[in-house]
Amino acid sequence: MSLIGYAARRLGLAAFVVWAAFTTTFAILYLLPSDPILTMLNRGGEGANVDPAAAAALRAEYGFDKPVIVQYLTRLGAALRGDLGRSMQNGQPVVTTIVDALPQTAVLAATALAIAVVVSSLLASAAVLTGSRGLRHALLSLPPLGAAIPSFWLGLVLLQVFSFRLGWFPATGNTGWQSLVLPAVTLAVPTAAVLTQVLAKSLGSTWEQPFVETARAKGLPRSTVHLRHVVRNGAIPTLTMVAIIIGNTLAGAVVTETVFSRVGVGRLTQSAVMSQDIPLVQGVVVLSAIVFVVVNLAADLVYPVVDPRIARVPATV
């Protein structure tokens, strides 16, 4: 298969995934037992008793009186031109609303991911390299613990200690790097737990490979063997997980951003779902689909760099 053909196929699949996400959310949201116009006229959370004639007029104004298929095609056509409609909550364009919130979540997720990668590499390496069985067991019992702690609770404990008691970091907001520390740590813990577990296992099995023995037999010190040979091979399984990890991070942002009162896509998702703001929910889902697709694509492109053997074999999807 030629490289261009490979790229075209990957891009076609990516487009399909995004379209499928758009269509599925449209179907689900329109099957829900709610009326977007009544939702809009119900700002404030109470069931509004709306004059049916007025509601019908608004329904026509927003195009919700048309047959579902017409609504679907209209929205799909607009989406292709980059217009995901307007929020039912405040009439602002969905794309602008998401684009405003996205950088904050991206910074938070990237910081959390960086913390998770560093912590998990250190933990996994230490667990593999240590001569003490007891220490290894202790280190390897950390991931299940990290995965079991609810982010919500962890966030509140961190706030209680480092913000309210010690006053080192602000409790809320998006201002300055200080406000990023506690939410990033909260978000990093479950990711670090998963990464450590996978990395420790794969590093451990790589250490048992014959080529490691060869390297050792050549007289290389353990640390050199570990960094130059074992980590490069052992890191590949974690790369495969990158899409899952990004997904978890986005999902974790919902809780983290709420606890730390931060602007972001997570909090936007939460409020959009709560108020059944159909265009906004759809926008967030489409965005998530795009992120998944891009990350997977990037991961596929990074494989050959980490492991040159992969480049010689055409990748299959």
């Binding site: 037992p33 709610s34 977007p36 069931g47 709306v50």
Partner: peptide, 21 residues
Amino acid sequence: QLDAAASSKAVAAGDYDIYAW
């Protein structure tokens, strides 16, 4: 248990014996 959207719809349809407010 009704979310805001569902309760709006129930109010419009008169689908309740009592409304708490």
